[in-house]
Structures are given as C-alpha cells and as structure tokens.
Nucleic acid binder design. Structure first.
Length: 583
DNA sequence: AAATCAACCAACCGCGATTCT
DNA sequence: AAGAATCGCGGTTGGTTGATT
C-alpha cells in the first residue's frame, strides 16, 4: 500500500524531514520538488496536530495544513482524516438496526450516493431523534459505503436479494404513486380541486413513510402523531452541526447544501428509482428483489441469461456497480428480440405470454427506447428499471396518443409543450392503462412483485425478516408451471376511484414547489403558524442572505392554492428556490 | 496451532465540480 | 475567459482482526 500520489500541490515535506517523530508509521508517497508526503495510518500525534490546526483555522484550505502545522500529509488526506475520524459528533461503532435499515432504504432511493446518504442520515437523525428514542448521529459516507459493500458481499454470497422485499415494495409503491400523480396532475387539470383537499406536505410524507414503515418495517419505532410544526427544524442548522453547513460556507455552496438537505426531505421521487440502478439485466434485478425466476420454463430455455439457473450466482461484475451512471449510457442500445415495434398497444389482454413481458423488462433495462417510438418525454437520467419503465410507459402513451391524435386530427405534442407544464403528461385515460391489470405496466409492475417470494435464510439480520404484508399481484398471472414460485391468490387490481383517491393523498414530491405549497401546512395543523415556522426554518437553513429571498418566495407561494405554484410560475421563480435538482 | 476466510476499517486514487486568480 | 487550485465524491485497495476449518 505504497501508492504514489499523483496530486501536485499537496502538502509536501522535504526529504530530510521524513525522519520526523510523526513519521514512525506509514510510508512516504511520491516526492515532488524534494518533498515527500507521508502516507498510511495516522498517528495520534498527527491527529492532535490536525485537530489543533482545525481549532485555530477552521475547516477548509486543507493544503495549507502542512504549511502551518508541519504535518506531513497532503491536504486531501487531512480532509479525509478530519471528516472521517476527527470531526466532532461522529458516531463510531457498529450500526444500529435503525441505522442499517435506514441505509437500506436510502440506498434503494439514492443508489451509491454515500455522501448524500450520510447527510440525509444526519438530517433525518436529527429530526427523527427529537421525538423518538432512536438516535442517528453522524455517520460518514465512508462508513456507510463500507457497510454497504460488506453487506453486498455477504448477501451475494448467501444468494439473497440485496433489498428486503418490503423495501422493494416500498420503492415500487413510491414510484407507482409517482405515476399516479404525474398522470393526474398534469393530465387532468380538473383534478386540482381534489388535490387541494389533501395534504401534500413533505414532512407529512416523510412521517407518513415512517408510519408506514411501522407496518412494513417492524424496526421503526412508534411515531407519535406529530405535525410538521413540531419538527425542531432549528436543529438542522444548529452550530453543533455546523460542519454540515458551515456558516462561513460560500453562498452558492450553501445553496447546494440546502438543496441536498431539502431534497433529502422531498426525497425526490425520481430518486426512488435508484433501487434499480444497479441492475443492468433482469436477472440481477430479479435476484435482488427476491423474484423467483424463471417465470416461464420456455423462456428460460430460450434465454438462459435472463432466466437461467444462476440464481445463486449474484454476478455483480466484480461486485462493482455504479448507480451514478445512467443506465442509458451504461448499456448498449441494441434492440434485440421483440421490442417496442412489436408491442401491440392494444393487445396486452389476451395472448400475452409472460416471457415477452419479462423479456421486455430486461429490454427496458438494457435498452431504453431510442427510436422505434419517438418519445416526447425526457429520457431517464438516473435510469433504472423503473425509470426505464416510466420512460417507456410515457413513450407508449405518447405514441398511443399521437396515433389516436392522428386519427382524430388533433394536435400533436410538441417539444415546447413538454418544456412547459406537460412534460410528464399522462391523461387519466392513459393512466388507466397503467392501472389496468391487462396493460403492460399494470401487469408487469404488479406481477413482478407478486413473484416476490420472501427468502428465508439463516441470516439473523432484519433484512431477512419476512414481509409484514403479503405481496400481491394482479389477477392475471403468467402462464407458468407449478414450479414457479408464484402466489396464486387473486387480487383485485381494478383501478377504482378509491385507488385514485388514495393516490391523490400522496405528495407529488417530484414537484419542487410542493415544499412551498401552503396547503399541506394549512390542512395539517396550525394553519399559518406552521407555515411561518417552516418558512423560518428553511430560511434559517439557507442563511441570512438567502432567507429574505426565500421568505419572499414562500410568501408568494402561500397565497397560491392548489399546487401553490404552477409549473409555469415555478419556472419563473428565482433560482434559489428551484433547488437545482431540476433538469 | 496453523491456515484460511470473511468482515471490518482506514486510507488512497481518480475524477469531476467548483472556486480562485 | 482560461487555467490553476481546491474540494468533494465514489471506487478501490490493503491491513488488521476474529472466526472457522
């Protein structure tokens, strides 16, 4: 472990200094201009020096540490050491069950965004721990990453799905709700009054999720019925956690951090799809979700790569995958087999054999549609299975629309339309395709999880705890043989008004303006008072110089009803309010 | 008791983004 | 505006330790 550093400008020491008392351990890396960097484990003396330096000069400017303190470490190394070991409020030791589960959930949502997870971890922990006994103090990204990688290996070896079924279900539900709302929101403006009658508050969703977890995830402690107003937002910007968002942080930097922080509240439904980021073929996805392939023996024969017997193999190429790389880039765009051109939009009902569907899933993963059906929708950025499915669904809906539009001589969708308010426009009629058990997606999504057979394993981890609720599928079943691990209970998946209503109750947190919407505050409790509290909290979070800007914007939002701000006014909002995660 | 393996942990590296000059 | 410096993130490697064979 004696690598040489490639970085220039790192803290350097002269060669004749390498016999310093601080250098009794570790090695010395590359030398440039007669100075040598110390590498390897840190000594307590070095730690003390670094701590002293940070006390005096604060964090940042790491490359000057060596100059000022005589520490023979590069700035990078100092920063890492500080961030991972020396900075205050770090929690050491084994992860608690709550932490483990949170990591699993966050990973399902975010993918390998360790730093974001760590930040979220901290933030949620602060809020969460304020009203329940669980404590989730700061963990480092490195810790989380190490934990996760270890977990992957362990489960890979055990032939277990990476995510416990309940987390998979949660994530899919989340994305389903996303579909719901996207479909309803932009597709039918007339639904706004319905939307207005419900709460769309981000904190509500967050806590609703936690409450939901009480049903699904036994480890989540009982949550008191607490309104958003009770959340001690002040803790988020307390000096104790100043390292998270330093008051001296650059303005733009603080905005970024605020974005991260707030997006950790809003979760970003789009991020929900990261669960699938790691799967570049259906086999892995299936394995990770605990699906029991093959669905169809014939398909298994035809396509052993997908349905083969390698269930226990868990081949993660080198155990190495990246969620940050969009699938659309990571995969070849070849369009094998039956693919989109052959999909009969109207013919899902009768003779649709399972294998093409699953094959299509695989196809979706590997080859987001690129040309067969021209899409008016943005291609998936953080593509995963669901992203691809959503994308395809929209594409198909769009195509369907266009074809019907052609017959009815109605106008076609233009890119401008997309850019405006209808980027995710799926009409209610179209949406019925999703909910329709015989539609490709309704069929697919429900069926996928109907296959989700809990795997009982010797692992004592909570990961393997059986799901609290039976995962149900659609009425229609794949025509598989008895060897398939499929549940056969018929489940009503009819798209009912109740289901619609249920979907309305979910916050569209894909809408960044949701946070600014007044309704969730007003409907939930405390009316304007809560809004003020929330506004103040966020404003405080953003810092003095941004708070007025934010408050002004929030005040504007509060006078709006329904969505608070429509998409158009959203586009006109100051950049500070847009939380930067929009494309 | 020695060898092997797995888990854990700390640190390094490369790279991209951001900030500074 | 351009290049350099700095920072931060994610991936990876290697050392240590404990359990198992």
């Amino acid at each position: 472990m004696s690598r040489t550093t490639s970085e220039s400008g790192d803290g350097m020491i002269s060669k004749d200094q390498t016999e310093s008392p601080l250098g009794e351990e570790g090695s010395y890396g590359g030398s440039t201009n007669g100075v040598v960097l110390k590498k390897g484990p840190w000594t307590s003396a070095e730690d003390a020096i670094l701590i002293e330096y940070v006390k005096k000069h604060g964090e940042g400017n790491w490359n000057s540490v060596q100059k000022h303190s005589g520490l023979f470490r590069c700035g990078k190394s100092c920063r890492l050491r500080w961030a991972n070991h020396l900075r205050p409020n770090l929690k050491k030791g084994a992860f608690t069950q709550e932490e483990e589960q949170l990591i699993i959930e966050l990973h399902a949502k975010m993918g390998n965004k360790w730093a974001r997870m760590a930040a979220h971890h901290l933030n949620l922990g602060l809020m969460y721990s304020s009203f329940c006994s669980s404590q989730l103090p700061g963990r480092t990204d490195n810790e989380i990453k190490n934990y996760w990688n270890t977990r992957i290996k362990r489960r890979q070896r055990a032939g277990l799905p990476l995510y416990p079924p309940e987390v998979s279900l949660q994530t899919l539900q989340g994305s389903q709700q996303c579909l719901d709302i996207n479909g309803m929101d932009s597709g039918n403006k007339g639904q706004h009054d319905i939307l207005q009658t419900h709460n769309y508050g981000i904190p509500d969703v967050m806590f609703d999720n936690l409450k939901t977890n009480q049903n699904i995830l036994p480890y989540v402690p009982e949550l008191p019925d607490i309104s958003a107003s009770s959340i001690p937002m002040k803790g988020l910007c307390s000096s104790e956690y100043g390292s998270f968002m330093s008051p001296t942080m650059h303005r733009q930097k603080r905005l970024r951090e605020a974005t991260t922080l707030l997006s950790s509240f809003s979760g970003g439904m789009k991020n929900d799809f990261h669960l699938f980021d790691q799967f570049q073929d259906g086999d892995k996805a299936a394995q990770y979700f605990g699906f029991s392939f093959p669905f169809d023996p014939d398909s298994a024969t035809k396509n052993p790569e997908i349905f083969g017997e390698n269930q226990g193999s868990h081949t993660l190429a080198n155990g190495n995958f990246s969620a940050s790389k969009p699938t659309s880039e990571a995969v070849k765009l070849e369009l094998p087999s039956l693919q989109y051109a052959e999909i009969d939009l109207g013919g899902w009902g009768e003779s649709c054999s399972p294998s093409p569907l699953i094959e299509s899933v695989d196809t979706f993963i590997q080859s987001p549609p690129t040309g067969t059906v021209e899409s008016n929708f943005p291609s998936p950025r953080n593509s995963g299975l669901l992203d691809a499915l959503l994308y395809e669904a929209r594409t198909l809906s769009s195509a369907k629309n266009q074809s019907s539009d052609k017959s009815s001589n109605s106008s076609t969708i233009t890119p401008g339309d997309n850019a405006d308010c209808s980027a995710l426009n799926i009409s209610e009629t179209e949406w019925e395709d999703y909910g329709d058990p015989i539609s490709p997606l309704g069929y697919l999504a429900t069926s996928l999880f109907s296959e989700c057979t809990p795997i009982s394993a010797g692992e004592s981890s909570l990961d393997e705890s059986p799901p609290a609720e039976t995962l149900t599928g659609s009425k229609r079943k794949f025509g598989c043989s008895a060897e398939c691990n499929m549940k056969s209970e018929p489940v009503d998946h009819t798209w009912t008004a109740d289901r619609k209503k249920e979907s309305y109750t979910q916050l569209d947190i894909t809408r960044p303006d949701a946070l600014l919407d007044s309704d969730w505050l007003e409907h939930d409790s405390g009316y304007g008072k809560d809004q003020v509290i929330m506004t103040e909290a966020i404003a405080t979070l953003l810092g003095d110089d941004l708070s007025s800007e934010y408050k002004q914007m929030a005040a504007g939002a509060s006078t709006d009803h329904g969505w608070g701000l429509d998409s158009c006014s959203w586009n006109n909002m100051p950049a500070v309010c847009q939380m930067s995660e929009l494309p």
